[in-house]
Structure formats: structure tokens, C-alpha cells
Amino acid sequence: MPTPSPSAPPTVHGLVITLQDAEAATEAFRERLRARAEFYFGEQHGKWLPVSVITDAPRALHGWLEQQPEIAAVDVVFVEIDAPDSTSETSAPSIS
């Protein structure tokens, strides 16, 4: 039976951020993201902004990104899986 793991090493993720509009990715917006995690920004095309990010809480980060007013959607396109575990970030009720 699998058991939850307490450790949460950071992993690398590639994301495609769909912005609400092409002007939304201001420097203030980028700073807000960098304050949350280690973000790297690629070349924006229209409403789409490629980023790579290092995080130990990808699910929480994903949820936070989706709540940002400048962001319409977030797609994951790359995941590092070598690091074995991440934190528990469940929304379902627990049996424990």
C-alpha cells in the first residue's frame, strides 16, 4: 500500500501561460511570479508566454497562477520526474 512521503524536492516544469491579452505580461506581473518561485520567461508570441519554473509545490503553484488576473489558462508541457516526491496538496477529504 503506498504511503504519503514527507519530503518535497524541487522539480523543473515547462509551462505555457495563456494571457488574458498580449499586453498583460508586464514587468510587475513577471516580478510577482518571480517572488513566488524561480521563474524563467521565454519569448512571448501573442497571448502565449512560455516559462520554465523550479518549484517544490507544483500543484499549488499551478492553482495560484490560474488565479492571477492576467492569466486565462496554464498548460503543463514538461515535467522533471527524477526527483521522487512532492508535497501533499490534496483537496479531497482524507481517510487518515
Binding site: 523543473v12 514538461f78 522533471e80
Partner: peptide, 20 residues
């Protein structure tokens, strides 16, 4: 780690380019 970051960016950039 740097390599994985660049691979992640390459993957994201490719998808963005295709969408555009």
C-alpha cells in the same frame, strides 16, 4: 538542472510557437 530548465523552456516555446 540548467539542462532541464532549458529543455522545459524549449518544450514550452515550441508549443507557444505552434499555437501562434
Amino acid at each position: 538542472r540548467e539542462f532541464l530548465l532549458s529543455s522545459a523552456m524549449a518544450a514550452a516555446t515550441a508549443v507557444v510557437a505552434r499555437r501562434a
